[in-house]
Amino acid sequence: MKLRADVRVGRGDRTIAAHVVADPSRRVVIVGPNGAGKSTVLAALAGTVRLDEGRIELGDRLLADTDTDVHLGPHERNVGVVFQDGLLFPHMTVLDNVAFGPRSRGASRDRAGRRAREELERFDLHSLAEARPRALSGGEAQRVALARALAAGPDLLLLDEPFGALDVTSRVEVRRAVRLALDESSATAILVTHDPVEALAMGDRIVVMEKGRVSQSGSPDEIRARPRSAYVGDLVGLNVIHGRGQGDSVEIPGDTALTLAEPMDGPVIVTFHPHAVSLHATRPEGSMRNVWETSVRHVEHFGGRVRVELDSPPGAAVEVTGAAASELGLAGGRRVWASLKATEIGCFPA
């Protein structure tokens, strides 16, 4: 079912606002740094938090609308949630946990039990049916939580950092289970994560939230091609710098200008890959037009590669080989020359 949500919720002295649209049976990933308001948006969709303003529609059902004072409780929405820490009911067996949804929606004990067993079988959990939640590993618990949410037959499935509390092995196991579940289910799904790899791998559509606002949304390809903030740039591994275009020159912070291959006017966003920048001890010879002198802010080693952060453009990241780094004697405060080919620079209107 199609989800159309305009969410505005006050949280202390700030407001979380997000517009989220999800096409039927598609997966939307909400990604953003911790504290961006992602979980609040999910809670608003689930109905455990009331909207201060806005409207939520799921298929042809109106779940909430502050204009007409509609607010369906969580139990009336048919929206399933998988919580970060699972929240399996500790006093019930795994089977009773999974049967809880069908039972609450009026299924007989037998029917609910059968439904729960099917769901457990699908996730290869049937041997744990009589176990208590505290006896499960983190990965098992999260798979049971997934089975429990799906057994209720939700129209919309919300997953709140479902891998967040897991170790690496369990992560893989649960991620596989979530893929399986989403592929087989007709439910529209929204997954919240702060992990960019996860976001880009699992989403049909990405919504990026920063500081309580949606900073960008689009398909993973669109996000990759046109990151609009430093945070999204980090997600996709690009430097993202806001500037002002004038002909084929862009003024950027740090009293620098970059030359573009194609002219563009007005507020623009320029992107370039950390590999695209070369560092030199002295001013490089040649026809390159983007050459500037700057200081190194600091240096980080990743295996054979070295990540260097520059003073200009402020915070720009550059990646060089370990050999090049030691040859240049790179360290915080070192003056270097940087060069960047115009053809390596992406540019689009801000």
């Binding site: 455990t48 409780g73 139990h75 949630v81 919580f83 929240l87 929606r105």
Partner: peptide
């Protein structure tokens, strides 16, 4: 943990349940 009650509600349980 309040979360358990929220979890139960999202599974379709009314407040009495």
């Amino acid at each position: 943990e309040r979360g358990y009650e929220d979890a139960a509600a999202t599974l379709g349980a009314g407040s009495w349940t």
